[in-house]
């Protein structure tokens, strides 16, 4: 077994575009769930509107790509308003169901053949992100060290994506230490108490949903730009659960948690895949497992990890243990 390959595969993914996109999505969730306590189970819907907002704008109107990004961001704010204004007055767990249902509605509509002219239906929209690569400052070739290397286009997407991750993390850090962050946490702890002290919890929850949604939408744009393509299969509901896994690995509420959580998640996820494939290829499992089983097996592993983390280490790696131990009712 080639452990060097297993390791380098993991490192490559930990640094790659996917890890950055997951980090953005989880940072957004962290604002909503970690700081404000909003159970957004439809974060993937925000990624979707980011991607489709960009793609449709460029494809339909011929607008420049930056205008598409702007539309994607506005679409995320709009989605936050549409979801938040009616639901944030209801019980907390209702938001979970409304958001997961809304994200699924968006996905079904995006994949519908009856909207094919607009969304591309199941075949998606491609070929709208070319101008992003025209700006690529790296000359063609491969960059990296040893087995971990990337071509110039991937490197360009990575550079932008990780820059966004840093900017988003700085934003969360600034918010978290401010009186605004204090209000967010008070809503997480007890909304009624916050209201009784003159805080307009309703408006602040919508803001939080929008801020986290916009950061998530950036993650969606990163994914779509990376493929220069988006269709409905990108945005399945369980994607949101992986974002929660990333957030919980890193530590709910911690600024750096979602970033390191995403890197660790992808390192383990990819190494495991590599390991399983090699083991299966070399017949370690005999006839019991075939190469198509590697995908589901590592997802089963993710599920198990999520359960065990939640039970035995709810604060994740960088969260505050003492805080996590206080009864969250």
């Amino acid at each position: 077994m080639d452990f060097g390959k297993i390791f380098s595969d993991g490192v490559r993914e930990a640094l790659g575009v996917n890890a950055a996109a997951y980090a953005l999505a989880a940072i957004g969730l962290n604002v909503q769930y970690g700081l404000t306590g909003l159970l957004n189970f439809g974060q993937v819907g925000f990624l979707l509107v980011g991607a489709y907002g960009t793609a449709i704008t460029v494809k339909e109107t011929g607008a420049p790509l930056w205008a598409g990004f702007l539309v994607g961001i506005l679409a995320a704010i709009g989605l936050a308003a549409v979801l938040g204004i009616p639901t944030l007055r209801l019980r907390a767990d209702y938001l979970a169901i409304v958001t997961i249902a809304s994200a699924e509605i968006l996905r079904v509509l995006a994949g519908s053949r009856h909207l094919e002219g607009f969304t591309g239906g199941p075949f998606g929209i491609r070929g709208w992100a070319g101008s992003f690569y025209d700006l690529n400052p790296f000359s063609p070739g491969r960059y990296g060290a040893g087995k971990v290397s990337f071509d110039h286009n991937t490197l360009w997407v990575m550079t932008v994506a990780w820059t966004l991750v840093i900017l988003a993390s700085v934003l969360v850090w600034l918010l978290k230490r401010s009186p605004y962050g204090r209000v967010l946490r008070s809503i997480r702890e007890d909304e009624d108490a916050a209201r009784s002290l003159g805080k307009n919890a309703y408006v602040i929850k919508i803001q939080s949903l929008a801020v986290g949604g916009v950061i998530g939408a950036l993650g969606g744009m990163v994914i779509a730009v990376n493929f220069q393509f988006t269709n409905d299969d990108f945005w399945l509901s369980p994607f949101t659960f992986l974002m929660y896994t990333v957030l919980i690995i890193g530590g709910v509420g911690s600024v750096i948690g979602p970033v390191l959580g995403a890197m660790l998640f992808w390192f383990v996820y990819q190494s495991l895949d590599s390991l399983l494939r090699q083991a299966i290829h070399e017949g370690v499992f005999g006839d019991v497992l075939t190469s198509t089983d590697a995908g589901p097996l590592r997802l089963a592993f993710v599920g198990l990890t999520l359960m065990l983390l939640m039970i035995y280490r709810p604060q994740g790696i960088f969260g505050n243990r003492q805080e996590a131990l206080i009864d969250d009712r």
Binding site: R185, D190, D192, A194, S196, L197, G198, Y202, E323
Partner: peptide, 23 residues
């Protein structure tokens, strides 16, 4: 709404105290 009443200067506490536990 509750927050406006509180801002107006009429502030309440709760029968079961609502301490913000993780702050």
């Amino acid at each position: 709404p509750a927050y406006r009443i509180a801002r107006a200067g009429m502030v309440r506490t709760f029968q079961i105290p609502k301490a913000l536990a993780r702050m």
